[in-house]
Design a protein around this nucleic acid. Sequence first.
DNA 1: TTAAGCATGTAACGAGTTACATGATTGA
DNA 2: TCAATCATGTAACTCGTTACATGCTTAA
Lengths: 180, 180
Amino acid sequence: MKLRPASHLILGMVQMGARSGYAIKKAADVSTRFFWPMSLAQVYPELARLEDAGLLSRSDDSHGNRARFAYQPTEKGEEALRKWLSSPGGEETQFRDEGILRLFFADNLPRQDQLALARRLRERAREGLDYTRKEIIPSAEALKDVGIDYPARIAQLRAETYQCTEQWLARLEGELEQQA
Amino acid sequence: MKLRPASHLILGMVQMGARSGYAIKKAADVSTRFFWPMSLAQVYPELARLEDAGLLSRSDDSHGNRARFAYQPTEKGEEALRKWLSSPGGEETQFRDEGILRLFFADNLPRQDQLALARRLRERAREGLDYTRKEIIPSAEALKDVGIDYPARIAQLRAETYQCTEQWLARLEGELEQQA
DNA sequence: TTAAGCATGTAACGAGTTACATGATTGA
DNA sequence: TCAATCATGTAACTCGTTACATGCTTAA
């Protein structure tokens, strides 16, 4: 049975304490989604696959009439997670950004429209930075209390990357304003 | 007919002077692929779609026995490109990086393996920066001679982002070395 | 009581990749 | 002559998304 990155992501989230599929998705939405997006529709089939493979064990965790399942990593599951963490591969990063793609072709635009585009992208970067500071960093910091440090570190990296982009766009904006 | 980002990418590349499908792919490989990946198998059907929609015109450009087609944007095509460049949308950027995903779960690893992972990722960042400086920036700089400035700007952004990441990983490496 | 959030799943669709298939030209 | 590169396309498959479908619980 072939494990994909999403499999390891889910395995890791369960290891971190996310019990239900819903909880896994919620946790991913404020953390891993920025470097590995995953939809809820992926989670449930993948949980089933992981259980079939004996990497997760599932138990009933309904309260009242609401159905819920609680997942736990098996020893085999913990082993698989550690093995993946130490393995090479997946070197190729993939990035998709229609905004930057537009900017790449911006020579075809009149000066004023170039400036407008740069401003929009800068605004977007600023919002991303804000969101990271207000939502992502705090939720990651909270995990430090239970001895989980890397999410906070990576949230920090995310903030710095946004800052880097925003500064670059600020410089571009400045240049374009001068030319106008 | 619906235009996707890849359609606009191809339209833009043709506008920039890439004549054949092959040339479009080659140009994309040293520029746009870093923020909008595209395979050769996408190019040919998309060129056909754009021609059908009247945004590109195609003419025979064989030399000798080797078949080749030369594409040119129609007025409608140029118009569509400008319209897209000024339009909003595509705000959501998407990033996939299995390396960072691993690092996110690195709390599950013994110190030494954490350090090894950090070093690998740093090495990767350094290679990416090197490649950007040696290959991407020079090919983008060359375009300035024909009045196309943005590719060089964006190559610069790419270099700065790598630097930012590399510095962050260097700090992490330092912290981990101290703890060991 | 009603909206937001919790909770689990499936089905249809679309986008993109890899592999396949073929052949010409050019420079070492 | 032989490898690298130029050149165009198709077919099968995989992955992921959106939309669908359903129902409970909790707090305002």
